[in-house]
């Protein structure tokens, strides 16, 4: 019985960590873990979930505890959904402990989105945003092209282990340089719409909104972490843009290409 308790704890914490690192909210990770443990027949399970870690204990015949740090990976809603499905099947009795463990391994092995797909998705999104911000065909196309390039650069920079803040800063700076080059070729281009459309994947709009949503639901800690994340992301983008604008204007020899 004691061994089973520790295995249940291991499984629930693994599931919770996978949820957190795939971009699920803390309360979802918390609820899912409690739900899985309860339906596997473990009484006395407690979990405290932070944005980047989990503390959990299970008090059966003897007490077990786990403290785990969650690395930050990219968002993966497919995994979140699969773990949700898994917890439901555990509750329905379709999956037992062994089955759940095998399922969790499958979920962990789900493929991540490739660089090409990320570039295409960002480009397509920015084409649409270019239109929503009132751009014409040229602005939309250029926003898409630049956004694709920027996402490629983001991925490559993060892969080298660069700090996310500096990766954002460098990508935003590159974006401004690219848009300015396009403007040299097409002087009638609306630079602002193009740049903002292309910037959308870098801006932390969702982080800000979801952070406030955490506040509204009473989770001030998770909300604060997301809010500060959003502020830093916005600041790094703005510094990148500001620096690159200064540089471009310097190259323009006093002619303001874009203010």
């Amino acid at each position: 019985m004691d061994k089973r308790d520790s295995e249940i704890l291991q499984l629930t914490v693994d599931a919770g960590i996978l949820l957190l690192s795939s971009g699920a909210e803390t309360f979802r990770a918390q609820q899912t873990m409690v739900y899985i443990a309860k339906n596997l027949g473990a009484e006395g399970f407690e979990a405290y979930v932070l944005t980047n870690g989990i503390i959990a204990s299970l008090k059966g015949d003897s007490a077990h505890a786990q403290v785990r740090h969650s690395p930050r990976n990219g968002m993966h809603m497919g995994r979140v959904e699969a773990i949700n499905e898994m917890s439901r099947e555990i509750a329905n009795g379709v999956l037992d402990l062994e089955g759940a463990r095998a399922r969790l391994e499958q979920i962990r092995a789900m493929p991540d989105i490739g660089v090409e797909d990320q570039v295409i998705a960002c480009a397509a999104g920015s084409v649409c945003f270019g239109y929503l911000f009132g751009g014409g065909v040229l602005e939309c196309m250029m926003a898409g092209v630049v956004a694709g390039m920027v996402q490629f650069m983001m991925v490559m920079l993060t892969r080298t282990g660069m700090n996310r803040i500096f990766a954002r800063l460098a990508s935003a700076a590159m974006l401004v340089c690219a848009v300015s080059l396009v403007e040299v070729a097409y002087p009638w281009l609306d630079v602002e719409i193009t740049a903002i459309g292309a910037l959308m994947p870098l801006t932390p709009g969702v982080a800000l909104t979801m952070g406030i949503r955490d506040y509204v639901s009473g989770d001030y800690l998770a909300g604060t972490i997301r809010l500060i994340d959003a502020i830093f992301a916005a600041g790094s983008v703005a510094i990148g843009v500001g620096a690159a604008l200064g540089f471009v204007n310097l190259l323009g020899g006093g002619i303001v290409l874009w203010n």
């Binding site: 699920a24 909210e25 979802r28 968002m75 809603m77 979140v80 959904e81 949700n84 999104g125 649409c128 945003f129 929503l132 911000f133 903002i196 910037l199 959308m200 801006t203 932390p204 709009g205 969702v206 800000l208 909104t209 959003a230 916005a234 600041g235 983008v237 703005a238 510094i239 843009v241 500001g242």
Partner: peptide
């Protein structure tokens, strides 16, 4: 989970450009 549909759905509405302009 509802977040699957919500995340994509709010993207056109969230103030991404507003945050950027504020910081800028």
């Amino acid at each position: 989970p509802v977040i699957v549909f919500l995340l994509g759905g709010i993207f056109p509405l969230v103030p991404g450009s507003g945050i950027y302009y504020t910081a800028y």
